[in-house]
Design a protein around this nucleic acid. Structure first.
Length: 426
RNA sequence: GUGGUCGUAGCUCAAUCGGCAGAGCUCUGGAUUGUGGCUCCAGCGGUUGUGGGUUCAAAUCCCAUCGACCACCCCA
């Protein structure tokens, strides 16, 4: 029988990788708390309509990337394909519009999309995201972007750039799309085949075509920011003012559009300087029409999602020295059967006192036990042999440096826990 | 979903024209029946991703399939 493999595009997060995950999750939770965001967990799956209506029927996510199945009751279920729509669904379902606004929520969760995997792109990946609902002030947009930037800064990620744009709203975007279409209509004979499809289906996407021969045409296309209505223009100015107030450098990128239908006004992405074609590390925007799309009352919102796998990728590039896995405080070494029994009792006492304690198992030689102690990364070895037991003592040895090599402290068995705690604190 | 590159031990990689599947690291034991890191010795570890085909003979050539990676599509 063939041994099974993890399904395509999924991966096991092994113990040596966990320190990176712990670090990112704890810093993310800390930043969220500093900005007044509270955690929410939504189900791993939703009624399919949450994504169809929320994200948009014409988007790639809905059209070809959802893990959708029928459950035994006949309901159409979809694995969480995106973070924002479920949070907005929960906001409406639980009447959070009755709470003081804005409601500021964050999540850390897996996302599932049926895509062709590459480095930094998976069928199951994880996102940290925030959503601030019920407020239209562009200062909130700036604060959300600042939050994301702060997360990366606390992780000391290098060479990131903030790209922003405004794609207008229901009132002014149609006018811009007409303008964009008429511009492209004159160039249809010289653009790529994909662009001709985009022209019909989703003209905004014309702007981020990567075919070299289409670049010049996209560069000279009309800018959405020049066709904004008064409200959107003021909002965009407010956003830029807010970013400047906060000392955040940004590039207005008029070719920045995003693949989800619900965005209005503000859109933004954060890019690493280097990286492949799917290197965007985080992105988001404003979605003032989403709640209504989902059948609720009109509620403005702004948020982002950032990929934890991609953050870790960038973190490792910025910190080549890596993160050490957690190590025990004390490694207990015992020689002889009675000594192993005594060592087991001491280990129990140490652990009760909150001291991380490890040992080998079975009847292993002193050399092997010291080798295991060294490999474990333990700070101290606590040695319990016939000599020690006979005198009611244990030997405590600092394993970290050669400087203390050879020196061992004799500690009465009754004082081992107190002495170890004192040594660890020093 | 499209096009391409690549799969040999847990990891990094060798293997000449198609001719006995190897090394380093890791791990285990020993040198040292009470002291880790350094050194030396030995051992464990393989259906060469999987399945088929060609051949006296396949890691090597052919087909399929699974997976990783790269460029698209698109995203985090």
């Amino acid at each position: 029988m063939k041994a099974p493999q993890a399904p395509r595009g999924t991966q096991d997060i092994l113990p040596h990788e966990q320190p990176y995950w712990d670090l990112v999750r704890s810093i993310a939770a800390g930043v969220a708390a500093d900005y007044g965001f509270q955690r929410i967990d939504t189900p791993m799956f939703e009624e399919t309509g949450v994504f169809e209506r929320g994200v948009g029927e014409g988007t790639d996510i809905v059209e070809k990337e959802m893990y959708t199945f029928e459950d035994k009751g006949g309901a159409s279920i979809t694995l969480r394909a995106e973070g924002t729509a479920p949070v907005v669904r929960a906001y409406l379902e639980h009447g959070m519009f009755k709470l003081p606004q804005p409601v500021k929520l964050y999540y850390v969760c897996p996302i599932f999309r049926y895509e062709r995997p590459q480095a930094g792109r998976f069928r199951q990946h994880h996102q940290f995201g925030v959503e601030a609902l019920g407020e239209i002030d562009p200062a909130l947009d700036a604060e959300v972007i600042e939050l994301l930037w702060t997360l990366y800064a606390r992780l000391d990620l290098k060479e990131l750039s903030l790209q922003i744009n405004s794609i207008g709203d229901e009132k002014c975007r149609p006018r811009y799309l007409d303008e964009l279409r008429s511009y492209y209509r004159a160039h249809l004979h010289e653009v790529c085949d994909d662009d001709r499809v985009r022209f019909e289906k989703n003209p905004l996407r014309l702007l981020d075509c990567k075919v070299p021969s289409c670049q010049g045409i996209a560069d000279r296309a009309p800018h959405s920011a020049e066709f904004l209505c008064d409200e959107c223009r003021e909002h965009f100015a407010g956003l830029r003012h807010g970013l400047e107030l906060r000392g955040l450098d940004y590039h207005v990128n008029f070719r920045l559009v995003r693949g989800l239908d619900y965005y209005t006004k503000t859109v933004f992405e954060i890019w690493p300087a280097h990286g492949g074609s799917q290197s965007t590390i985080g992105g988001g925007g404003r979605y003032d029409g989403l709640a209504e799309q989902l059948g609720g009352r009109r509620t403005p919102g702004i948020g982002f999602g950032t990929g934890i796998e991609r953050i870790i990728l960038n973190y490792k590039q910025a910190h080549p020295e890596g993160l050490a896995p957690p190590a025990p405080d004390v490694f207990v070494i015992a020689l002889g059967s009675a000594e192993r029994d005594a060592a087991a009792q001491i280990a129990t006492e140490l652990r009760r006192a909150g001291v991380a304690t490890a040992s080998t198992y079975g009847d292993r030689g002193m050399g092997a036990q010291f080798k295991a102690a060294g490999n474990s990364g333990a700070r101290f070895a606590l040695i319990l042999g016939p000599d020690e037991l006979a005198s009611g003592q244990a030997s405590l040895k600092d394993l970290r440096s050669a400087a203390t090599d050879g020196k061992q402290l004799a500690v009465p068995l009754s004082h081992v826990v107190a002495e170890v705690k004192a040594q660890l604190a020093s």
